[in-house]
Design a protein around this nucleic acid. Structure first.
Length: 507
RNA sequence: GGUCGGGUGGCCGAGUGGCUAGGCUCAGGUCUGCAAAACCUGCUACCGCGGUUCGAAUCCGCGUCCGACCUCCA
């Protein structure tokens, strides 16, 4: 735990020194997906970003309770007042499934995708439908505290009252007067006192599939309520970190803050972290077809892996995609292009290859803390310091890349081992393993996949082939040697002739 | 229309007042039977116009373009 951890807090709009409420422990809540369709690649970026944050907090030695919810009711499409429809409900009708079948289907898909991206599972993954009781209780408390009112079976949060007594709009920078002016069709606003008020309990229309009994009506909770209720239940009234995509800042997170204020006059999270959007070819991903090119500016994760999409020239493995995401800061937009992905692929290979070489380096013994030793130590320290500076993964990654030539140089003999100590070499090995696998959460897919001895089998085979080729080379039988090399290349296995023999790797 | 955040070299992407990441691409070289890999070397950029400053990619103003959200429209 070298440097002080700093985070950019969306709430205060500045970088702050991170201080957990309880020494050594952190409560973190991240808004999870609404499981009404296949997981969007942009969502994957958000969860990969928080996975790196989670991993780094764990690395720092914190005990982290990471709560990420599943929204399986209440997320509406359109406006409540004008006959909006629950996303899950709508899908259920469309696919002629039970709402819970829809939820299960897409939740499974989401979990599979999270595993593919090698994200750690959250400590608790609560579902909105499993916390209806807590939500009803919270609605009642908010009413009792005078921050909500019931009308025709629905309950609305009184934003104007909060604006007078607290500060509604603080997170998103919205001003209540502006929100009030943004009124349109008044006839649809009959139930609300103010246009900026939002529903926390909604009376169900007869055709609505998902509904529960409550003191006000047979209905269902408003979308924003679940996060307030569940974060309070598992992390308490006041916890450390709340995260999510920045498209959730308003209204979702703003309203969460309002609800918590209304329920207990407290501020839910001390630090709000927001990830930025993933673009494609410079634009927001959109499923609609471009009339000029005839293709849509969107891609599903699976298509990204298989290459089955007109926006890319080939498939990129999940780890390449994860690496690609690590090259930008979580709070910046990231532009997905074929060129950027193929650059990431090469860089990823180079890093993995560098690590493999590093782990096999053995210090010959004659050592001194020379310039090289100093440089390597400085780069290692910098990498940690930058990761502690608002989780700056791209910067930390850059340090690793600055270390790769040193590793290669030592192996090739350009750099002298007597300029570096054995301890530093060991520290470097540990640093690379820690960053690549523990913090960045990458896996090496340049070796054979699967595990279970597959790699050993393949390696044994390769060693045999390399031996055969070597004897052909010694006999100057270039034809045989090249045929072996070309055949392997076609199988995406690359041979690398070096001074100390031939190595191989998967392309 | 409103709120917020951005425009960095051929491409992606860090960087917030002087020391100017990293990856990919490209060019030259070393090594090598050839190639690949590896290594070495080269490539100095910050949307436009003003301003502040000894000094600005970095701060301020205006313009412009892009994105997200809230609207509007459909």
């Amino acid at each position: 735990m070298s440097a002080q951890l700093k985070v950019y807090n969306s709430l205060t709009r500045q970088k702050e020194i991170f201080k957990p409420i309880n020494e050594g422990a952190i409560g973190m809540y991240v808004c999870g997906p609404t499981v009404y369709s296949d997981v969007h690649l942009g969502n994957c970026r958000t969860f990969v970003s928080f996975d790196v944050i989670y991993r780094y907090l764990l690395h720092l030695g914190y005990k982290v309770r990471y709560v990420r919810n599943i929204t399986d009711v209440g997320h509406l499409e359109g406006d409540v007042d004008t006959g909006a429809e629950d996303k899950i409900s709508k899908k259920a009708k469309l696919e002629q499934l039970e709402p819970m079948e829809v939820v299960q289907k897409y939740m499974n898909g989401f979990h599979d995708m999270m595993a593919v991206f090698n994200t750690l599972k959250p400590s608790i993954e609560p579902r909105a439908t499993g916390h209806i009781v807590e939500q009803i209780e919270m609605v009642q408390t908010i009413i009792d505290n005078g921050f909500a009112y019931e009308k025709n079976g629905s309950v609305y949060f009184d934003t104007v009252k909060l604006a007078k007594e607290g500060d509604y709009g603080k997170l998103s920078g919205r001003i209540i007067e502006d929100l009030l002016v943004e009124t349109r069709d008044l006839k649809n606003q009959q139930e609300k006192r103010h246009p900026s008020d939002f529903a926390i309990w909604i009376k169900a229309a007869p055709e609505h599939l998902m509904h529960w009994n409550s003191p006000w009506s047979v209905g269902f909770p408003g979308w924003h309520l679940e996060c307030s209720a569940m974060s309070t239940k598992y992390l308490g009234n006041n916890f450390d970190i709340h995260g999510g995509g920045n498209d959730l800042k308003f209204p979702h997170h703003e309203n969460e803050i309002a609800q918590n204020h209304g329920a207990c006059n407290c501020q839910p999270a001390n630090y709000w972290l927001h990830t930025n959007m993933l673009l494609m070819n410079g634009k927001k991903m959109s499923k609609s077809i471009d009339p000029e090119t005839g293709i849509s500016n969107s891609i599903a994760p699976e298509e990204l892996f298989t290459g089955d999409n007109p926006n890319i020239s080939k498939g990129y493995s999940p780890m390449i995609v994860r690496f690609f995401m690590l090259q930008s800061h979580y709070s910046s937009t990231l532009d997905l292009t074929d060129g950027a992905l193929s650059a990431a692929e090469k860089a990823y290979r180079r890093l993995m290859e560098g690590n493999k070489i590093l782990q096999e380096l053995a210090h010959p013994g004659k050592e001194s803390a020379g310039d090289l030793d100093k440089e390597v130590n400085e780069l290692i320290d910098l990498a940690y310091a930058e990761m502690s500076d608002d989780f700056n993964a791209p910067k930390a990654l850059a340090r690793l890349f600055e270390l790769v030539p040193k590793i290669n140089g030592l192996k090739a003999g350009h750099l002298a081992f007597d300029q570096i100590t054995a301890d530093t070499i060991e520290k470097l090995k540990a640093t690379f393993n820690t960053f690549i696998f523990d913090i960045f959460g990458l896996q090496d897919d340049t070796v054979a996949g699967g595990g279970d001895g597959e790699y050993e089998t393949l390696d044994g085979l390769m060693q045999m082939v390399i031996k055969i080729r070597q004897s052909a080379r010694e006999n100057k039988d270039w034809g045989t040697a090249d045929t072996i090399r070309d055949t392997l290349k076609a199988l995406k296995l690359q041979l690398k002739d070096g001074k100390e023999g031939t190595a191989w790797s998967k392309e």
